[in-house]
Amino acid sequence: MRARLRRLARALLFPETVKYRLLRLLTAVLVLGAVGSTALLVSYDKVHRVPAELQARSVPAVQDAVAFRTALLAADEQAHQSYVNGLMDTVGPGERYRQQSGAADQALSRLSDRQIEGDDGRRVVEVLNVLHKAYQDAVYEAAYYRGAENRPMREQKLREAEVVLGRDLTGIVPRLTELQRDQLASIEDETDVSAAEKAGWIAAESALLLLALVLVLAWRVLWRSCGRLFSGWLAVALVLVGVLGAVPLAATYDTQEKLDAVHTALVRVDRTEEQNRIDDGAATVRDTIASTSAAARALPWVAAGCGVAVVCAAGGLLWRLYDDYGRD
């Protein structure tokens, strides 16, 4: 009795006629097409948006921090040289000190504008600003105390500058090191593939695979039940689904590799004090990010491909339904 009822319900709800099988396949095409396209476009966009964001904020922030450190240490070295060579009475901390110190000011000011660590970063940069000012004051005061009778005060001020610059935990350099470490950790998070992104890609690829399967099934139905061996619509749709399943994924893989390369280059830039290496690293970062732009620009084409694939698949089936059964 129960089996009979089940059969009756199935016959009513899922009639095994060709028309209804085609209608069910059409529904599957529409649903999988929508899910696959959305997941694909969102996932593709998410990865390809990162290079532009890196270029706009994160990379300059890291480079500004590196520039600040380099200029600051160079300025300190110049002030030290001026003192040990007995030039401080004549030229103060020296012209090169002023130049490097000015560069450090500029870098810190830019870093304040575009640091990437949110409120925490803002607070660190604020303290760096204050300490940098204290450091500069101490160096200029050291230069102000001239002559042998003022030597103790000069030495006191230079020692004060040294402590403000480098003391563990509280000095400029340790705080900057911590900020740079946090910056790189942020960039690593930004460039890494997150679990959500992986899930998005799995959803997109699974939906496209199922869509291809549905299209093959639809083709089989048309062939076996309607005697039509070839459907141009379905063939185009099937090829497009294959291309959409493979090309954006390959492009994303490539972009991801480049993002990893950017991160590695930034780590290298962050850990060196040699200007040549900093320049090389910056060039690598710039070129690598630039090389991802073609893939980022391809998003509208991917969207168009998704649209065409779904339209062809659904159109092919609708055409057959209308042609064979629509006039009933």
Partner: peptide, 16 residues
């Protein structure tokens, strides 16, 4: 809360 600790707090406070 958010805590900011520094020995140079006079200047940080003034700038804030």
């Amino acid at each position: 809360y958010v805590y900011q600790g520094t020995a140079a707090q006079r200047e940080v406070l003034l700038s804030q």
